[in-house]
């Protein structure tokens, strides 16, 4: 991470606060309770000491939020790396609940054979799983980062949604 200085403050009897100042001067971070609960905190604009919001998040919700924040970063980075190769795109493909591949493996999608697109990473609960093996099992909420041609990526998205 460049230029982000995460401050870790113990809250005796409660847990830990981890936050950092944005370039706008506001703070954003989380309060992790000792029993594992997480709260997302955002400071007020006119009073940087106080919180505009402190939203309790379940583990699933925190994971989903982390995916939303992390995946575009990864895609932007890969797109940047592929800029010299015209025709190659990077795209995020979600495994929605109800997808036929929820609970099945990467190998079963036969993605590369059918579309030419490769899955280079899977984002799960804010964690990046790079170069997943064919036996990597998907679950709903996963975000796949795939590289390929525009057509290949479009049909990959259809496969993941409809089988």
């Amino acid at each position: 991470m460049k230029g982000v200085n995460v401050e870790v403050t113990p809250l005796p009897g409660i847990g830990v606060r981890k936050d950092f100042a944005l370039s706008s001067g506001r703070r954003v971070g989380v309060v992790t309770h000792r029993d594992g609960k997480t709260e997302l905190i955002v400071s007020k604009a006119d009073d940087p000491d106080a919180c505009l919001a402190s939203l309790p998040l379940t583990a699933d919700e925190a994971g989903a939020l982390a995916n939303l924040l992390g995946a575009p970063q990864l895609v932007a980075q890969l797109t940047e790396e592929h800029r010299e190769l015209p025709g190659i795109n990077t795209k995020q493909l979600p495994i929605k609940s109800g997808s036929p591949y929820d609970g099945r493996t990467l190998g079963e999608t036969a993605m590369r054979t059918r579309t030419g697109a490769s899955v280079v990473a899977v984002m799960r609960a804010g964690q990046v799983h790079p170069s997943p093996n064919p036996d990597f099992t998907f679950t709903s909420g996963d975000l796949l980062v795939a590289v390929g041609t525009s057509e290949g990526l479009d049909s990959a998205a259809k496969i993941l949604q409809h089988g």
Binding site: R17, E39, S54
Partner: peptide, 9 residues
Amino acid sequence: GRLGNRETP
């Protein structure tokens, strides 16, 4: 909702 406030510690 003041656990994240800076004066709370």
